[in-house]
Write a protein that binds this DNA or RNA. Structure first.
Lengths: 358, 358
DNA sequence: AGCAGGAATGTCATCGATGTCAAACAGGGA
DNA sequence: TCCCTGTTTGACATCGATGACATTCCTGCT
């Protein structure tokens, strides 16, 4: 007759494979998942059937059934535009890579409200672990999940109202060391540029900065401490403003990567004599001879990923708080004596004081 | 009696909420999803019940039921470490942001085999759309999905054996313009540094380079064309080798971002006299006065994201092939006449010829 | 009061894979 | 040949939310 077999709508399912192989769905599943206790000839038949039908298992169904362990990990960061965050993500990606885990990434632009929204979405998707660079200050909304056994790992900034693992930087040691170095070379007017004081890292580093000044016998001059600098552009103009003061600083320390970039670009143009130490490394930092307190965001991401993997395997236990070391890389830009003469030409070429030498 | 209500294992479900609110699961669902035809007092009861139980809907279940439209988009890129890719991802993220779509990111390190694996995983997770920077050269394995109506968008490099939308750069116009500029200023020995010839972008840009030379009446000198440069480090040494030749080029053009960084770092140290044009912008590029053919990966990601959104809404139609313009930004590093004197000091400071002026 | 008709709610099956448990089967020993 | 044990296989319920459809509840109107 004209009765045709209607072409199957949508994707082929395990049922279809089973039907074609002449077995039950369960047996097909056993074969596909490589379970033992399947006769090798049936296994073959199932495989060819699956290949013929281009069968693609549906993870949603599988994960729904085996509730609790999905194959997705959620990562919440500030913004993929910022190399700090994207390298962090690269590190996490690297750690998860071999373990059949997918990485769901969402960015918050450091807005607490958005953090809640994207975390919510991830929880609805039942991620196996949640990793986040927090922007919100209250994380009690995660308490329920923690009790349900969801591994939660905080990166770069610690959890506030919830107990969870965290991987942070040692924001003190090398910042202090850098300041001490500057003080040793005779600098007394040292300026610090930082992001918003609401950010954990900013206040930590500023605290270290102030302590180091005090230790060096220098009274912190609050007019030299500029905060709430969110991007390279404002860092650049803040630096220019500093230099234009009647009594400008002889050294500047920038407390994150974007601020470093902005400050360096101003210094390269305007003032070759000001000593400088940046935070986080950047392209050409070595070539230009810029001293930095450097860290490797990939390492942080990778480390946090390892913790996540362990928690997934072994269940959550006593939360860990890891502090990763930074590294002070002296490349010369912090060594300029405060007494160097100003060049007569402004902006005609990069500051020699900032260039690589060794 | 001692019969206690056992504390519910695992997460609360819609059933639990319904039970507590004294309605059926379906009604609870209607209330939660904001459907009409729910009396406001029942809606209230459901909401408070949901809040009490901290109910979190299970997207896996929902998406399994409504097969076809999940809320996840898959993005396959080379490597989050590379700012080109991470900014691409930032652009996609930005485009999807307001549409309740999650972004699943996987990286291939540009290995064709890995591409298949991660794409496979995304398909199993039933992404609503697939966006990828392809590394494989054969994409016939995607044909089935295409026929099932899955929107597939290629970025940066075109699809080969499958029909799909693609968003590419105009790899010709500005490369040619840059070469013409150099030729106009008298350069005859112009070197090009490119990535692997298997990469679409590398060969396209090299083709443009060769054509431009020919148009300018210069016979392409193959010894000046170096390929298979994969990272900044090898670009730096390749550049150093070039400069050390008996008859070094007077101008160099780098054909992607990592190569640009590497070349610039060598030029800054070793040879201020060689003219240079980079590809893709980078931090401090402006400050250092490096001329570049620039593009905005975020724009590409965003654009591709828009296409994905449209395809998701309106279904796939005739595939589009979009070519985004680049921009030639002249900042001085390409203007150095070939006859400039070599400086006597090597490596003592950045090349004035490469520094920003005006 | 009776009734039409829309609003509100409920029942049941379903999405696709898999855990549970039982049935069918095969092979070896008595 | 028959029984026993271990291996393969299958039937069925389940994960949680929701679509299709049925039922009950109102409200206004004759």
């Amino acid at each position: 007759m004209t009765a045709e077999i209607p072409p199957r709508q949508g994707r082929t399912t395990l049922q279809d494979v089973a039907r074609l192989a002449g077995v039950s769905a369960k047996t097909a599943a056993r074969a596909i998942n490589g379970e033992s206790n399947v006769r090798s000839d049936t296994r073959e038949r199932v495989f060819t059937a699956a290949a013929t039908l281009k069968f693609r298992p549906n993870r949603l169904a599988r994960e729904l059934r085996q509730s609790a362990r999905t194959g997705a990990v959620g990562l919440v960061i500030g913004n993929l535009d910022n190399p700090f965050y994207s390298q962090l993500a690269a590190g996490v990606d690297h750690a998860l890579r071999e373990h059949d885990l997918e990485l769901i990434i969402a960015s918050t632009d450091d807005e607490p409200e958005r953090e809640k929204v994207v975390v919510q979405a991830m929880l609805e998707r039942r991620v196996t672990a949640l990793m986040l660079v927090p922007s919100a200050t209250d994380h009690s909304y995660l308490e329920g999940e923690r009790q349900l056994g969801l591994p939660i790992i905080f990166l770069d900034r610690p959890p506030v109202t919830v107990v969870a693992d965290s991987v942070l930087w040692d924001n003190h040691t090398d910042v202090r060391k850098a300041v001490h170095e500057l003080a040793t070379r005779g600098h007394r007017r040292i300026s610090a540029l930082a992001d918003s004081p609401e950010l954990f890292t900013a206040t930590e580093r500023l605290t270290a900065f102030r302590e180091a000044l005090t230790e060096a016998g220098i009274a912190p001059d609050e007019t030299l401490i500029l905060t709430s600098i969110h991007d390279a552009t404002s860092a650049a103009s803040a630096t220019a403003d500093l230099l234009a003061r009647d009594d400008p600083p002889t050294a500047i320390i920038a407390l994150n990567n974007r601020i470093s970039i902005g400050a360096v670009s101003t210094l390269l143009r305007d003032d070759p004599t000001c000593a400088f130490v940046g935070f986080d490394d950047f392209d050409l930092g070595e070539t230009l001879g810029i001293s930095v307190v450097t860290n490797d965001p990939r390492e942080m991401g990778n480390y946090a990923g390892q913790i996540a993997l362990r928690r997934i395997r072994e269940g959550t236990g006593t939360p860990e708080r890891i502090s990763l070391p930074t590294r002070l890389v002296q490349r010369g830009s912090g060594e300029r004596p405060a007494s160097s003469p100003h060049p007569s030409t402004r902006g005609s070429r990069p500051a020699p004081g900032l260039s690589g030498s060794d």
